[in-house]
């Protein structure tokens, strides 16, 4: 049984009321979604919030899942929508003026407060992730999201374009400028350390 078939079998069982199947399905994706959230938001509490919202969304819409797309793409679509919502909500809640760190503004801005990395990321074994998060922090939310989808989720430019409702060319441009920016940040860091 392929992973995709297994997903579908679990979904069918969960829809029939099997709590076991539901948990198994969640366990298969929770780590991916949590780490996705960590890279997008830069802190574990927002990542947890996002993950829980994603699975609630999955749960509420499970009966709408048709199997014409892969479950993994579907769940990342939900994750994307939740991240956009969450970012918008956070911006409304923090009265700090909206700023755009890049030339291209969009629906994404940075997650407010994301610069404050939690202590756990500053210390010990997570040093590598801390450095990566610090680099990602330099990106606008648009760029960050595209880097996440392209580099970590291996989506194609077309898929990202569809997900974000922008042209594939815009995605390409933003991705390349994101990489350039990451390069600058990493060089700066290397000089400092």
């Amino acid at each position: 049984m392929s992973l995709v078939d297994e997903d579908e079998a679990l979904i069918a069982a969960a829809l029939k009321g099997s709590a076991y199947a539901w948990e198994k399905l969640v366990k298969r994706y929770e780590s991916k979604i949590y780490n996705h959230g960590l890279r997008l938001t830069g802190n574990s509490s927002d990542a947890m919030d996002l993950m829980q919202e994603v699975f609630l969304g999955v749960y509420r819409n499970l009966h709408r899942f048709r199997g014409d797309a892969k479950f993994s793409s579907w769940i990342f679509r939900i994750a994307h929508n939740k991240a956009v919502d969450m970012n918008r909500r956070k911006r409304l809640m923090t009265s700090s003026p909206k700023f755009s760190s890049e030339d291209e503004g969009g629906e994404f801005e940075k997650f407010p407060g994301q610069a404050n990395l939690e202590p756990e990321y500053r210390l010990g074994s997570q040093e590598l992730n801390t450095r990566i998060l610090a680099m990602l922090n330099a990106l606008s939310m648009d760029q960050r999201s595209i880097v996440e989808l392209k580099v970590f989720q291996s989506l194609t430019f077309d898929e990202i374009a569809e997900l974000q409702d922008i042209s594939a060319n815009t995605v390409k441009t933003r991705f390349y400028s994101a990489l350039k920016k990451l390069k600058v940040v990493s060089e700066k860091e290397n000089v400092l350390s």
Binding site: W22, S31, Y34, F55, Q126, N129, F152, L182
Partner: peptide, 20 residues
Amino acid sequence: VQRDIQQWQEQSVPHWDRGR
């Protein structure tokens, strides 16, 4: 720089109820 960020180490999910 792309390879650099790809070194991300998967972090384990804190305990949660999984919608149980």
